[in-house]
């Protein structure tokens, strides 16, 4: 039996989720910032962490954007194979939802449809849509407004298959060193290991959807997470580059099968304004 779903429901859900993601900081991220605030010993770094916590509170209460860069609109769809969509195109339904959220809530329109001409047509569309077909008759939607201050600091390397875990750690630590104070630390790192060039980068982005302080259940990957977090927090960058240990609030590594000849590693850097929201139809 297939379930008929009108795409207007997708529009409404996408709009609702972007409104929420941009104004209510994820509870796991807020918790991580609070923990860093408690631990921070450098006075002006501590006061800035306090500002970030206060900022999240104000945004949620006044329903305004946590950060003025409300990002490029990334949407992950998991569509059940028993769903039959009706009423129009899926892609357009998602874009209408983005447009609605961004205009109704006075979010900044930051997307230029052509990267060379760079004309901003408003609407913050087209969205970046990743679709998976899964079992079942429902649709799971996750939205992620991704700011570009931190997106610009991402890195990918096609490493040798003989590389050791230390080499993976060194590459990821290097990405944070290069980002320095520019992209609003404390950072969250989504790291993809393995796969192909494009699936590795996508795994890195999806890793940012995990609770920021979560640990990968595979011990060898958990070890990578722990080591990358320790080493990046010894770089001395700190919140806003003011020094101290609050450089990275969380590291999430996701692994994918890969080829005998290679070891892709991708780091997707997120600023402290790590935003996403999920819902179902």
């Amino acid at each position: 039996m297939s379930r008929k779903i009108d795409v207007s429901l997708i529009t409404a859900k996408v709009a609702e989720l972007f409104a929420r993601a941009n104004t209510e900081l994820r509870p796991d991220v807020l918790e991580a910032l609070r923990e860093l605030y408690e631990k921070e010993s450098i006075p002006n770094a501590k006061s800035m962490l306090g500002v970030l916590v206060e900022n999240a509170g104000m945004a949620g209460k006044e329903k305004i954007a946590i950060c003025q860069d409300t990002g490029i609109s990334v949407v992950f769809l998991e569509i059940g194979m028993d769903v039959r969509l009706s009423g129009g195109s899926l892609k357009e339904a998602v874009d209408r939802g983005v447009e609605k959220a961004y205009s109704d809530n006075f979010f900044r329109m930051s997307v230029v449809p052509d990267p060379v001409l760079r004309e901003n047509t408003g609407g913050n569309t087209p969205a970046v849509v990743h679709t998976d077909i899964v079992e079942g008759d429902g649709i799971a939607i996750t939205v992620m407004p991704k700011g570009f201050g931190s997106e610009n600091k991402g890195k990918i390397a096609m490493m040798n298959p003989t590389s050791r875990p230390e080499d993976i750690v060194a590459f990821c630590v290097g990405a944070v060193r290069d980002a320095g104070p520019d992209a609003c630390p404390p950072y969250a790192l989504g790291i993809g290991v393995g796969g192909t060039m494009e699936t590795c980068a996508l795994a890195a982005k999806k890793a940012l959807l995990r609770p920021v302080s979560s640990v990968n259940p595979a011990p060898h990957l958990a070890r990578l997470e722990k080591e990358i977090k320790q080493k990046t927090n010894s770089l001395g960058i700190g919140v806003m580059g003011l020094g101290g240990g609050s450089t990275v609030m969380g590291v999430c590594v996701e692994a994918l099968p890969t080829h005998i000849a290679g070891l892709p590693v991708a780091v997707n850097v997120s600023c402290h304004a790590l935003r996403s929201a999920s819902g179902e139809i």
């Binding site: 970030l52 006044e62 954007a65 946590i66 329109m109 901003n120 201050g149 104070p181």
Partner: peptide, 27 residues
Amino acid sequence: VTAGGAGAYLSAKVVSCECVAFEDLAA
């Protein structure tokens, strides 16, 4: 430098705002 990513907080420190040039550039 000021608090990156604290746009809501900083907006409360602005008492007036007026577009004075390059209006076509929006944000």
